[in-house]
């Protein structure tokens, strides 16, 4: 089973994604993709750790190269979030490359290994602002990845101010 949770800033997508795995009785792995750089990132990480406390997650930090993850049996995975992973992959070298295929390969590998793969991703495409080229590339590739992931997923859930809406499949 695979579920994608999408939304904007502070829309309750993490809380909902965690809740999906509340009833899972095997082991749960949280894949954190945010590089703990700067005060705001530290704060965000702290807030998320607090949210996950006592929910039975093991945490692994993986900023790039999802396809390297090898999962033991009977695990559910919560990956948070695709927005950071994409930025990490795209901007890690001086020359920007399109990591879509590499990321999709990593997701397919996780989907095969995990009992339930839940991915939190971001809708970054609706502010209508024209940014410089690199940011526009990021918005476009984010959209490509979200569409590809949604094809692979059983459920796609959009969060609006904390309210989950089923875009594909059903609410869990």
């Amino acid at each position: 089973m695979m579920t994608v949770v999408i939304g904007g800033s502070k829309c309750g997508k993490s809380g909902y994604a965690e809740k999906i795995l509340d009833s899972f009785d095997g082991k749960k792995l949280y894949i954190a993709t945010m590089i703990p750089y700067g005060e705001e990132a530290q704060k965000a990480i702290k807030r998320h750790r607090k949210m996950r406390r006592n929910k039975g997650f093991e945490t692994v930090e993986k900023y790039t190269d999802l396809d390297e993850i090898c999962l033991p049996e009977n695990y559910a995975v919560l990956l948070e979030c695709m927005g950071n992973l994409l930025a990490n992959e795209m901007f890690k070298n001086e020359e920007i490359t399109d990591p879509t295929e590499k990321i999709i390969k990593g997701i397919e590998s996780l989907k095969t290994q995990a009992q339930h793969l839940v991915i939190v991703t971001n809708n970054v495409a609706c502010d209508g602002i024209d940014y410089e080229r690199e940011t526009m590339d990021y918005i476009r590739i984010m959209g490509d990845i979200n569409r590809r992931m949604s094809e692979l997923a059983d459920n796609v859930i959009e969060c609006v101010y904390g309210i989950p809406l089923a875009v594909k499949g059903m609410l869990l």
């Binding site: 939304g7 904007g8 800033s9 502070k10 829309c11 309750g12 705001e40 809708n123 970054v124 495409a125 609706c126 502010d127 209508g128 602002i129 940014y131 940011t135 990021y138 918005i139 609006v160 101010y161 904390g162």
Partner: peptide, 25 residues
Amino acid sequence: EIGCGIVPLEKSDRLWREQVGLAGS
């Protein structure tokens, strides 16, 4: 709904966007 965009460059804009998300929720 204002949260579905690129993280703003200005710190005050980032704070505002997050506070709107939390208040709206």
